[in-house]
């Protein structure tokens, strides 16, 4: 059936985001990128956390895991480590990935796990009705900062670069073609990819116009994402909001490639079987 279906990733379930939500753009771009990846829906797993953006699995027709707040990355890592043939994509919000679960992002980047993380960054907690998030701006007024935020925002991209990230990009749901392209490149990447997707919350913190005014494409300026120091500079740009691929290297083995050197490519999902009696006896012999 999926082979005959011109849109195999279309779901029968309608997204329940607010009209105009940036997450619609991310969903459309992800479907487009998956369609172009040549993957079948059953070969893809989309893992999410908790929040508006994390409702995404199910709006797209693939295997899905709608998990706990902040924990999509370790679930995705577990899936990938059990069966690396699957394309594993984690989709979540800035609360999930830059707040409660940031630790996991740092370590997935360090290990270079071959998973793709799309963070729908709206600088606010949306589903809990508008509180400060880790990326909220200094001075931003929210329900928990009625006098303006007094907390400096996290800079996730340079942090993940410092953690050893091998693919670090930003894109904007107001530029769907760009977003699809970035996700396609992330899918092709060897190892961990962080895609920071600016996805404005039209209800609690609408930054559409602001971002539209300030964003520019790195690739339009001839930027080459192959130098770590240049990447830091580009990430810290003061002249607007750069989008595009800041940093990319393909020479670093993924965690799964290195695991294969130990487990011999005998992946856990394909190896649910007992031990041969010779091996079993040799293991007992070790304890004699």
């Amino acid at each position: 059936m999926p082979l005959l279906n011109p849109k195999p990733f279309e779901s029968d379930t309608r997204a329940d985001w607010c009209p105009g939500c940036g997450d619609f753009g991310v969903l459309a771009a992800l479907k487009d990128a998956l369609q172009k990846s040549g993957r079948q829906p059953h070969e893809v797993v989309v893992v999410s956390g908790i929040g508006c953006s994390s409702n995404l699995p199910g709006y797209i027709r693939t295997y899905g895991f709608h998990g706990l707040h902040g924990r999509p990355v370790p679930v995705a890592v577990g899936i990938k480590n059990a069966n690396p043939k699957l394309l594993v994509i984690a989709t979540a919000g800035d609360g999930d990935e830059y707040g409660i679960g940031f630790n996991h992002v740092v370590h997935a980047a360090r290990r270079n796990d071959d998973i793709k993380l799309i963070v729908m960054n709206n600088e606010i907690y949306g589903l809990t009705t508008g509180q400060l998030s880790p990326t909220s701006k200094l001075g931003q007024k929210t329900k928990t900062s009625p006098d303006g935020s007094i907390i400096y925002p996290l800079k996730p991209l340079p942090t993940i670069l410092g953690a050893g990230g091998t693919f670090i990009a930003r894109t904007f749901s107001g530029d769907p073609k760009h977003m699809s392209w970035v996700i396609q490149e992330a899918i092709k990447h060897r190892g961990f990819a962080l895609v920071d997707a600016i996805s404005p919350c039209v209800t609690w913190h609408n930054i559409y116009d602001e971002v539209k005014k300030l964003f520019y494409r790195l690739e339009d300026r001839g930027y080459k994402p192959d130098d770590e120091n240049e990447a830091y500079k580009a990430m810290n740009a003061q002249d607007g909001i750069p989008i595009g691929i800041f940093y990319r290297r393909e020479d670093k083995q993924s965690f799964q490639e290195r695991l294969a050197e130990i487990n011999g490519g005998r992946w856990a999902a394909d190896n649910v079987k007992s031990l041969g009696s010779e091996i079993a006896q040799s293991l007992v012999q070790e304890m004699l």
Partner: peptide
């Protein structure tokens, strides 16, 4: 937290 979630992920994937 990562350990438990990864174990669940691996099992979900068939291990």
């Amino acid at each position: 937290i990562s350990v438990m979630n990864a174990t669940i992920g691996a099992s979900y994937a068939g291990a």
